[in-house]
Design a protein around this nucleic acid. Structure first.
Length: 605
DNA sequence: CTAGGGTTAG
């Protein structure tokens, strides 16, 4: 009886102290968790860290996870990893936090390696782990690893998790496997604005703008959720890639109605879209509404102006951002070099190129060499461009751009020798092979060497190398007119176009355009009799047709080798006259709705 | 602790 009481007493005391122990620790844990989640800088993080050590909670998994996440937030991945290594019992949260930390630090391979380590433990991954890993694959564009992890996802029963599926769609999209992304999307029972965005983005980034817009339409028709700024960015980007001003304006209307027009990223997408749709004036309007544009909006505007032939504007913007102490990046330099190249500012371009690294701390790479090669080649300094291309070290994926540029320049200026060398470089590295054959053949033909020109074409046929014909398109009202390079005859408006091109050619000559004098030769092996020589100026406009977009709803984009961009407006008037159509885009009614009927197309600012 | 957006070039 007595002993029983004693035991009860002891148990109760133990229980009591256990409770108190647990209670104080729970309070401490809660305190540290709160502190770590809200700490604003590294100093307060390290202070809390030392307090954790003093409190004796350093072996506590939950508290240490908080510390790891805190260090990860301040990109101190080494601190986080050290803490992780000292943990007696890391759980799935510890592992996942560290992996996510590595992904955020730009080291996705280490994240995948950690997962490999984790598989040697008893800790099982959860949906958070898989999302993080799929994100790592997405950054690496590693389809093999992505598929393997997708397999694990299915095996472990996370195949219907909304977040995991969204990451999978994104991963397949970034790996350019649009069909697999769509399979995941279609397999989902529940979707949200994020999963829809992932699928729309996949289409937009894989040159399937129409599918992106179609899916966006479906999403809006469901009326479940409002599109957010992420989705709208992708949609605008799809419009840009299609050169679809009408859809772009409609989307801009949605942006305004949903109050997303103050988002800088959306504004940047709009700047790009209007520039690609030929309305650089609108780009400028949107750009000037961004309060403190960062390097990306600036670059977007610089590139937009450059494409439009407004080289001086590009350079002004560049100077402006330098004055505002915004550091240009590699893309910015592509933009300004492009601008110089397309506005004949060769000396300025070379000067900028030479001062890139020293003055602005941007290391020139293949993109910039290609710009310079293009700049030199364009004005006939093909030999210099060739020497440059030979002398620089180029990583494999930039190879085709550099030598492709050189090939085009040497063909344009009749340097068959360099064209031959450039083609050899492309063919040997197994890049742009078909294009190289065609251009080289054209170079021979241009030089009057029909024998070699035809021989190459025959060889292509024999070896089964097929070149997809280049195409471009123009949107007029609700119709899209597609043009294939060198194949004006198949177009229903062939006569209109040819007379237009002739007219434009005259105009260019009148304005003192000095280009090569040789004509373009289309060698058609199947119908050799159909060889056709069109004047060089006309060729350029033929290629330009559909590749530059004009103000007023006409979508014509100008090719990079056209230096008469100032004539765009002139050309536009001409097209109006000749084609005799109304070019006003009609599909902007929603703007009227938004602005109480006072807004007309193009002045919704 | 986890997902989703924009800029070059061809």
């Amino acid at each position: 009886m007595k002993s029983n009481l004693v035991i009860t007493h002891t148990v109760s005391r133990q229980h009591n102290s256990l409770f108190r122990y647990y209670h104080t620790n729970a309070a401490a844990k809660a305190y540290f968790t709160e502190k770590l989640q809200t700490c604003k800088n590294l100093i307060s993080a390290t202070t809390t860290h030392s307090n954790v050590l003093k409190s004796g909670l350093s072996n506590d998994t939950f508290t240490t996870n908080g510390l790891i996440n805190c260090y990860v937030r301040f990109l101190r991945i080494n601190h986080a990893h050290k803490l992780f290594d000292e943990m007696p019992q890391p759980n799935v949260v510890s592992w996942t936090s560290l992996m996510a930390g590595y992904v955020n630090c730009g080291r996705p391979v280490t994240a995948l390696w950690l997962f490999h380590q984790m598989q040697g433990t008893l800790v099982l991954p959860n949906e958070f782990t898989f999302s993080t890993l799929i994100n790592a694959c997405s950054i690496l564009a590693s389809i093999d690893m992505g598929r393997r992890i997708h397999g694990l996802v299915e095996v472990m029963g996370f195949g219907s998790n909304l977040v995991v599926c969204s990451s999978l769609i994104d991963m397949y999209g970034k790996c350019n496997h649009v069909d697999e992304a769509r399979i995941v999307f279609d397999s989902m029972y529940v979707r949200n604005v994020v999963s829809w965005t992932s699928m729309i983005t996949t289409y937009a980034q894989n040159a399937q703008g129409h599918c992106a817009l179609q899916l966006f339409r479906e999403f809006t028709q469901l009326r479940l959720e409002k599109p957010n700024h992420f989705m709208l960015c992708s949609v605008i980007s799809a419009c840009a890639s299609l050169g679809s001003l009408g859809s772009g304006k409609v989307t801009h209307g949605i942006v305004i109605r949903l109050w997303h027009d103050t988002n800088d990223v959306v504004a940047t997408a709009l700047v790009d879209m209007y520039a690609k749709c030929g309305c650089v004036h609108y780009s400028d309007k949107v750009f000037r509404r961004i309060p403190n544009p960062s390097v990306i909006p600036y670059t977007s505007m610089i590139v937009g102006a450059a494409k439009y032939g407004l080289g001086t504007l590009s350079l002004q913007l560049f100077q402006e951002m330098i004055d505002r102490r915004i550091k240009p990046n590699d893309v910015t330099f592509v933009g300004v070099l492009h601008a110089c190249s397309h506005s004949g500012l060769i000396d300025k371009g070379l000067e900028l190129f030479n001062s890139m690294n020293g003055k602005y701390g941007v290391m020139p790479d293949t993109k910039h060499y290609t710009c310079i090669a293009d700049m030199l080649g364009r004005v006939g300094r093909v030999e210099e461009a060739y020497q440059l291309a030979k002398s620089v070290h180029v990583e494999r994926d930039g190879y085709s751009m550099l030598w492709g540029t050189l090939l085009a320049a040497s063909r344009l200026h009749g340097r068959v020798d360099i064209a031959l060398e450039a083609s050899r470089q492309l063919i040997e590295s197994n890049q742009q092979v078909a294009g190289a054959y065609v251009t080289l053949s054209n170079a021979y033909a241009l030089a009057g060497d029909w024998e070699n020109a035809h021989q190459l074409r025959s060889e292509m046929k024999r070896t089964g190398i097929h070149k997809e014909p280049g195409s471009s398109w123009i949107e007029i009202k609700d119709s899209t007119y597609v043009f294939h390079a060198g194949d004006v005859s198949k177009c229903s408006q062939a006569n209109e176009i040819l007379s237009l091109l002739k007219e434009l050619g005259h105009r260019m000559k009148e304005r003192g355009y000095v280009g090569g004098t040789a004509g373009l030769v289309f060698v058609d092996v199947e119908e050799e009799a159909k060889e056709e020589i069109v004047s060089l100026h006309s060729e350029k406009f033929a290629l330009a047709f559909g590749l530059i977009n004009m103000p007023g709803g006409v979508t014509i984009r100008i090719m990079k080798n056209l230096r008469m961009c100032r004539d765009c407006h002139e050309s536009f008037k001409l097209i109006s006259d000749i084609v005799g159509r109304d070019f006003v885009v009609r599909d902007v009614n929603r703007f009227h709705h938004f602005k109480n009927g006072s807004c007309t197309c193009g002045d919704f600012w």
